[in-house]
Amino acid sequence: MSIQIVPQEALADGKKSASHIAPLLFANLKTLYQHRAARLRKLAEDSPLDGYLNFAASLCDAQQRVVDAQPLSVDLSAELADAAGNPPLDCRLMPRSTYWLSLLDALIAELKPTASPTVALVLERLAHAPNLQREMMATRLLNQNFKQVPADQAPFIWAALSMYWAQMAAQLRGVGRADYGNNRQFCPVCGSVPVAGVITLGTINGLRYLHCNLCESQWHVVRAKCSNCESMDNLHYWSLHEELAADEEQSSEQALASEQGLVGRQTVVKAETCDDCGGYLKMIYQDKDPQAECVADDLATLLLDDRVEDKGFSRSSINPFLFPSS
């Protein structure tokens, strides 16, 4: 299946989606970065990665302040009309306005006063880089040419791009509609890749949504199939607490994978691996911890990535604080 954005005027018949399951969820930008920062600091308390998690938290705090101070107001009707089956905010095709550069400058200004000497040097280089150079780095990141962008500057550039795309996504005047098609592993709003999957709580309890690493939208992908290649066979689930392969998930949206071991069902983060495509994606189980947050919990469990990659699997997602070097 794929998801399209349907303008409100096209919903005159009162049908708001092809299913009772909401295919698409947009981020709440009033609390998104604030909640992420709090979760990062909580996870840092007992983590060997505490230094980097706290750095990421400070960046999220700055993002929240910038978004609050510089809200975006934009009419996206032309983009919706021209999408022609592509994501309406396609990150590789959509022309960027200079607004994202103002977000980057504001982010640098917010971070500078409390930055460590090492981070301050990086911010200084970014602040004085010509806009053409910054635009080139942005284009390379959005096209996943990560090796062509300095690793120390990439998180700041992406943070500004993400604020830009997340605010545009929030401006979409329409709802998601599920249609049959391919490329479910890519965000239907902007075409970027997920950070991880989230097993949800509340009125959508037990459903799986993939969380976009750029525009922060979430889109529904049924469980019991690989999020990368859609295979329904040879799926296994791994956690930091156990060296195990779980049984495949049941087809029911409410069912969890049955897992062996002492802690099994209490694990907040698991890696779903697929023997068919050789990929893996982490799953964040909010029913095990309602405060779990996709970006934060993914970043805090890098040891799980190491163990799964040692078994020969390749990550099919990207965390905005940790871009691949190759």
Rank of each mutant, 00 (worst) to 15 (best):
I284E: 14
Q167D: 06
D82L: 15
D247T: 14
R223H: 04
A129I: 05
L126I: 06
G261H: 05
L49V: 02
D90T: 10
E9W: 05
G51R: 11
A56E: 06
L93C: 07
A78C: 00
L53T: 10
L161V: 05
P113H: 10
K112A: 11
A44L: 09
E293G: 03
G197W: 00
Q250M: 07
L161Q: 08
L40T: 05
A62Y: 06
L104F: 05
L281I: 15
A69C: 11
S252W: 03
A257V: 04
P194D: 04
E248Q: 14
Q133Y: 00
E45W: 02
L123P: 05
H20W: 12
K15N: 12
H236D: 03
L101K: 08
S251Y: 02
K42C: 09
L207G: 01
Q254L: 01
K147Y: 04
A127V: 02
L201W: 01
G261L: 11
P48A: 15
D75C: 14
D68P: 03
Y52K: 12
L210S: 05
F186K: 04
I199V: 11
A255Q: 15
I3M: 10
L121E: 06
L126F: 07
V193C: 03
D310E: 15
C60V: 04
A224K: 02
R96L: 09
I318Y: 03
R315P: 14
K112M: 12
L121D: 06
G174I: 01
H35D: 13
S58G: 04
I5K: 03
E309Y: 01
S239A: 13
C215A: 12
G278C: 10
E309N: 01
A127N: 10
N182S: 12
A78Q: 15
A151T: 08
L262W: 10
R41K: 14
M168V: 00
W165E: 06
A18I: 04
L235M: 13
R36P: 04
F26S: 10
E110M: 04
V269D: 09
S102P: 02
G191H: 12
P23G: 13
Q171A: 15
L29N: 11
P290V: 08
S77I: 08
A138W: 07
P155W: 08
Y285M: 13
R140L: 10
I21M: 03
A169V: 03
M232N: 08
Q171V: 02
V198S: 10
Y99C: 04
T301S: 15
L72W: 03
I5E: 08
L101T: 08
D297R: 08
L210G: 01
L24V: 01
E110Q: 12
L107K: 08
L299C: 09
A10W: 11
C215Q: 14
F321I: 07
L24Y: 03
W219Q: 02
D276F: 02
P88S: 10
V263I: 14
Q153I: 00
L40I: 05
I3A: 06
Q64F: 07
F55Y: 09
G176Q: 00
Y237V: 06
Q4F: 10
E243D: 15
A169W: 00
S97T: 13
L123C: 04
E272A: 13
L25G: 01
A69E: 12
G181A: 02
K282P: 05
D247G: 14
E249H: 01
C187F: 05
E110N: 01
C277K: 03
P130E: 07
K288Q: 15
L101A: 07
D298V: 13
N213E: 08
Q171K: 09
G278K: 08
L25R: 03
N228F: 13
Q153C: 00
